[in-house]
Every structure is written in C-alpha cells, then in structure tokens.
Amino acid sequence: MRNMFQLPFEMKKIIRFRKSNGRVKQIPSLFNRMSSLLDEGYTFSDSINMLLPYHVENVENWRGKIQEKLRRGDDVVEILQSLAVPTQYLMAIKIAQENGEMALALKNAAMQMEFNEKMRKKLINLLAYPVLLIVILTSVFIAFRKYFLPNIIEIITSSTNENSSSINVAIMFLHLPDILFIVAGLTFSILIFSSFYIKKQGIKKQINILLKIPIVSYFYKLQITRHFSSVLGGLLVAGFSLQQALTVIQDQQLNKTLSYVTTVIEKSVKYGESLSSAVSIMTMFFPKFEDFIKHGEKSGYLGRELLIYSELLDEKLQSIIKTGIALVQPLFFLIIGICIAVAYLSILLPMYEVIEII
C-alpha cells in the first residue's frame, strides 16, 4: 500500500502533468466516438489521433506523448491512464483487450461515466437550495444570539433580578447550529481518518474491516460481485477456460481487491472444487450468487449468465443511487423545518417573558 506521506508528492506530479498537457475534456464523448470508430474498423491508434483535437487543447504535445507510449509498447489501459481516466472504468477495458470487445467496453464505460456525472449534477442541484436555506438560517441564529437576545436578557434581568427559564431555553435552542456543525465535523473527520486507516491495511484486512460495517458491507459485496461476474463472464464468453480466465483476473493490478478474491477462488478451483462451491465458502459475495453460478454451470452458459447477473446488479445499484439522491433533499428540508421551529421558539419564549413583565 502507498505510504500516505507520498501522496503530496504524487499530487504535485499530477498537477504538473495537467498544467503541461492540459485537461482532457468530455471523456464519455471521447469513449463513445472511439467505440464507433473501432466498430468501423479503425485501429485504436488512428481513433485516438483523430479524436484528440476535439478533446484537448495542446494537441501536438498529447500526440507526441501517446506516440511515445505506443512505441514503447504500452497497452490501451496505460495510454488511457495518461488521459486521467478514472481507474474504476479501466478494469473492463483491460479485460476487453483479452476478449476482443474493446468497442463494447468503451461504450459501457462511457455510459457509466455519463450516469455518474448525471447523478452528481442532480445531487448538486438538489442540495443547492437547501444548503442556501441552511446558511441563511444559521446567519439568523447567530445574529439573534449576538444582537437581539442580549437586549432581552438585560430587560428581563433588570426587571426581575433573576435568571429566566425561557431565556435559558432560548439560549439552548440558539446553539443548535453549533451542535449540528460539531456533529457534522466529527462525522466527516471520523470518515476521513477511517478511510486513511483502511487504505493503509493489506487487502485481506481491508475486506474484513469493510464486511463488518453494516451498510458499507452491503454495497461492498454488491460491488465485488458485480465486478467479478462482469469480468469473469466476459472472459468466459470470449472463449477462455475457467482456469485461464481466473489467471487473467488474478494477474491484473488495476483492481487489487478483485485480484486477491480471484486468487483465493483459483486455489479452490485448482484442487477440484466447482466455481459455485468456491464462491459459497467466501463471505464477500452478494447473497445467492453461488446459486446463480450453479445454474450456469448446469446449463453450460456460465459466461452469459454471469454477464446477465452483472447487468442485474448494475441496475440494482443505479436504482439505489437514484433513490438515495431522491431522499437527500427531503432529509435536508426536514432539518431546515426543525431549525425553523427552534428559531420561532427561541424568539417567542423570551418575547412572552417580556410581555408578561410589561
């Protein structure tokens, strides 16, 4: 695992690289067009050289770097990595180099990028108004606590010469934003610290830790199962034997978790276990995954059924993401509603006290 102290130096390299080369724009569009050109018979080299002017500013510099990589014998994945394509989309492309489905892999990666970008923009749009309201409410709370409440306290104490319970309640209510910000800050800090801690562990320990966290465990199993079934299914459909397919997945370094999981499965398969039996022993896959594999083994269409199962999980994940994003705005409005109610109480209680005194 990378040492966390190396991260600043790596970030500096990335920043220098981007400054000297410029940013690659509209990667999903690049992948879609490249997929169409590959289907028409163009080579990868011809396709990327043809499309670069539409997606980068310093065209000659990019072309020179890509040609240098091609002369060195770098593969498609290494070239796409230089274009700052996120690693999560490169796994399928890596496997596509083995099974000859490069055009389809690029098209699928473009669809995933477009979906993620669409969800990101939707989340930003949904949160923009609630966040603005929260900022305004927080400003009102602070202004009332700093300017208005001290005058009321002075009026009440000068008239009664004792502390008022309504004032104490109002002060407590007016500290609600402080409590919310402290809780949010602590939660964020814990998440960041936990993320760094987990990343520093070995793959086996990472898996064990993540599988013990209730909600995270569900999504982690879903992601591993989705990736494994997609990659293995694609290789089996391309004509690879089970043993060959497992070896290819095991040797790749883009997804080390998948490589580790496949290594464990491959050892069981070597000793004569069926794939369904090897999967059933492990606790890191989605429930009933072994039953699906068993059906594919019996029918003789294991590769095709694994791809279908991967598509089902992908649809399930996208549905969960859409539902989660749809619930974010109502949750924020509920928090805003509570803040407004508290604001009214913190204003009205001292005002009633003043009215009674007058």
Rank of each mutant, 00 (worst) to 15 (best):
M4C: 09
L7R: 09
L7Q: 06
E10L: 14
E10Q: 14
K12D: 09
R18D: 08
K19Y: 02
S35P: 07
S36K: 15
T43P: 04
D46I: 01
L52T: 02
P53T: 04
H55C: 12
H55R: 12
E57R: 06
V59G: 06
K65I: 03
I66E: 02
I66Q: 04
E68P: 03
Q81I: 02
Q81P: 03
M91S: 15
I95G: 09
Q97F: 00
M102Q: 08
A103W: 06
K107C: 08
K107G: 11
F115T: 03
E117Y: 05
M119D: 05
L127P: 10
A128K: 02
T138W: 14
Y147F: 13
S159D: 05
S164D: 06
S165H: 06
I167L: 12
V169P: 04
I171Y: 08
M172Y: 15
F173M: 12
D178G: 06
I179T: 06
V183S: 05
G185E: 02
L186I: 08
Y197V: 13
I198K: 00
K200D: 08
G202Y: 02
G202M: 03
K205F: 03
Q206C: 00
I213D: 01
F219C: 02
I224F: 07
L232I: 11
G233T: 09
L235M: 04
Q244Y: 07
V248L: 09
Q252K: 03
Q252P: 01
K270E: 07
Y271K: 11
S274F: 07
L275A: 15
S277Q: 12
F285K: 04
E290H: 08
E290S: 14
H295E: 12
L306C: 15
D314V: 13
L317K: 13
Q318R: 13
I340H: 07
S346F: 02
